[in-house]
């Protein structure tokens, strides 16, 4: 819990620094304040993002929901720790780093292969289909990684198959592209989103495992 709240604050700080400026810039295209590929045939549009921290409530909510989400993830990590210790694999703070990396792979990287992090203004397939694919991908990737980490060799092979499965099925996509924002901006947004969540997940694993080792027997 405490790990989740602490990491949520760090996540929000990283997001304000690296992600939110791109998000606000994307919204200029979403609302039509800026148009890329505009009618005069030019493929150029102005770069630069609006000022940060102009909407305190919105920023506060970002911090708040980061805490909620990362507390949720921390609880799942703790569940994983408990299960792994029941199986005789003791958790240490250093192993927490690995758990955090695995969490990043399962929850961010694997779904991003099929569904890239979306800049505002992106038009994509039906949100419910995407949510279903996203949840299934996270689940089977987590199970697959678990099998590779803790199972016998054969289970590891099964784990790899499980991880590949959602990508063989394929994520829901549209038949046409609708992009209204500059491609550079969308690409930067996707990499910034993955980068910040990678850092956050590793910290989450470290903090959760440190607290786990400290308070497990209390």
């Amino acid at each position: 819990m405490f790990a989740g709240v602490a990491v949520g604050v760090i996540a929000a700080a990283l997001q304000f620094w690296l992600v939110t400026p791109l998000l606000l810039e994307g919204e200029l295209y979403e609302t039509g304040a800026r148009v890329h590929f505009s009618t005069d045939g030019s493929t150029q549009s102005e770069a630069g993002h609006p000022a940060l921290f102009t909407e305190p409530m919105r920023d506060l909510m970002t911090v708040g929901f980061n805490m909620v989400a990362f507390t949720g993830f921390a609880l799942f990590l703790a569940v994983g720790f408990a299960l792994s210790e029941r199986g005789g694999h003791m958790v240490t703070a250093r192993k927490g780093l690995i758990w955090g990396m695995a969490g990043f792979i399962a929850v961010q990287l694997a779904p991003a292969i099929g569904l890239p992090p979306e800049l505002p203004g992106t038009v994509a397939a039906d949100v419910e289909l995407r949510q279903i694919w996203w949840i299934c991908t996270v689940l089977v990737t987590a199970v697959g990684l678990g099998l590779i980490a803790f199972g016998p060799t054969l289970a590891g092979v099964g784990g790899a198959v499980l991880i590949a499965l959602p990508h063989l099925i394929g994520a829901p996509h549209l038949d046409t592209y609708f992009g209204v924002a500059a491609p550079e901006l969308a690409a930067h947004f996707a990499t910034a989103s993955l980068g910040t969540s990678a850092a956050t997940w590793v910290l989450l694993g470290l903090f959760t495992a440190t607290l786990w080792v400290k308070f497990k027997d209390a």
């Binding site: 997001q15 919105r58 970002t62 961010q108 979306e118 993955l194």
Partner: peptide, 15 residues
Amino acid sequence: DTAHDQRHAMAFPCH
């Protein structure tokens, strides 16, 4: 609306 920015940043399928 309140969770919007965090959802985008974390790449939850959002809207």
